[in-house]
């Protein structure tokens, strides 16, 4: 099993957001997480990535069988956890090339590998750029600075391709994308799917799941996964909204 979340409770400044999340993700699987706004989807993603502003108050997260608790953000990333941000951060003055080169080499160092020679790195960049159909000179610009919403999301997938994670959590990577970009992003993900890695896709739209077909769909509601099912669940949600889930919960 790649990821196992047991009874996870987490919050911020004493406010509880996650109230007992259970989730298991195996290698080779794609999981979709859906749910109304503000129910804790992004929080869950951040907590898995080790974001320090959130406090884990109970439960545990096992990754490759090991408890993540003591691992820093960067060590989790180096172990293969990638978070595609719902709102990618702009970092003025740091070019994407510098940024990724630093990331790639620090991850390699962690794995006991030598830094990638400049030429190889550039070739890798060109290859991955093609994968997500980035043609522009995006890579010479500062990280996310002045990017359009769609460009930011494409850039997240590009970075994922560069870093080749084991577990990729994509937080609403589809929102703000036009039809073509959506297809490109989905294709990118599909090309990166391997039997030894896994994806957790957070989305509000069933449409993305036509492209990236999930093995499981979960509904996160008020900090808990209240329903899980196959990809048909997503279709049902698209048709009926969340009201019936709320009612089921209240009942």
């Amino acid at each position: 099993m790649l990821l196992q979340i047991k009874n996870l409770h987490a919050g911020i400044n004493g406010k509880e957001i996650l109230r007992g999340v259970n989730l298991e993700v195996n290698k080779g699987e794609v999981h979709a997480i859906m749910g109304p706004n503000g129910t804790g989807k992004s929080t869950l993603a951040s907590v898995i990535a080790g974001r320090e502003v959130f406090d884990v108050t109970a439960g545990e997260i096992l990754y490759k069988g090991k408890n993540l608790e003591a691992l820093s953000i960067e060590d989790r990333a180096r172990e293969g956890i990638f978070l595609g941000f719902q709102y990618p951060v702009e970092i003025p003055g740091v070019s994407i090339t510098n940024f990724l080169r630093t990331a790639v080499n620090e991850i390699r160092k962690f794995k006991g590998l030598d830094p990638l020679p400049g030429g190889d790195f550039l070739r890798l960049m060109e290859e991955k750029k093609r994968l997500v159909e980035i043609t522009s000179n995006l890579t010479n610009r500062s990280v996310n600075e002045g990017f359009s919403g769609g460009e930011k999301k494409k850039n997240e997938i590009f970075q994922m391709a560069m870093l080749e994670p084991m577990l990729a959590i994509l937080d609403e990577t589809d929102s703000g994308l036009d039809i073509d970009a959506l297809r490109i992003v989905a294709n990118g993900v599909n090309k990166l799917r391997r039997p030894d890695n896994a994806f957790v896709v957070i989305t509000h739209y069933q449409r993305l799941l036509d492209y990236i077909v999930p093995d499981f769909v979960h509904v996160l509601f008020e900090g808990k996964i209240v329903k899980s099912g196959s990809k048909e669940l997503a279709i049902e949600l698209e048709e009926k909204g969340y009201d019936w889930i709320k009612k089921e919960q209240e009942a």
Binding site: A49, R51, E52, S72, I73, E74, R76, A77, R78, F82, L83, F85, P88, V89, I91, V94, N98, F99, L100, T102, A103, E106, I107, F110, V143, Q159, L163
Partner: peptide, 17 residues
């Protein structure tokens, strides 16, 4: 957070920023 999530160590991230 963004940089560290991409595997860049805290010291390096700070230096870059």
């Amino acid at each position: 957070f963004y940089m560290r999530q991409r595997g860049i160590g805290e010291d390096t991230a700070r230096m870059l920023l």
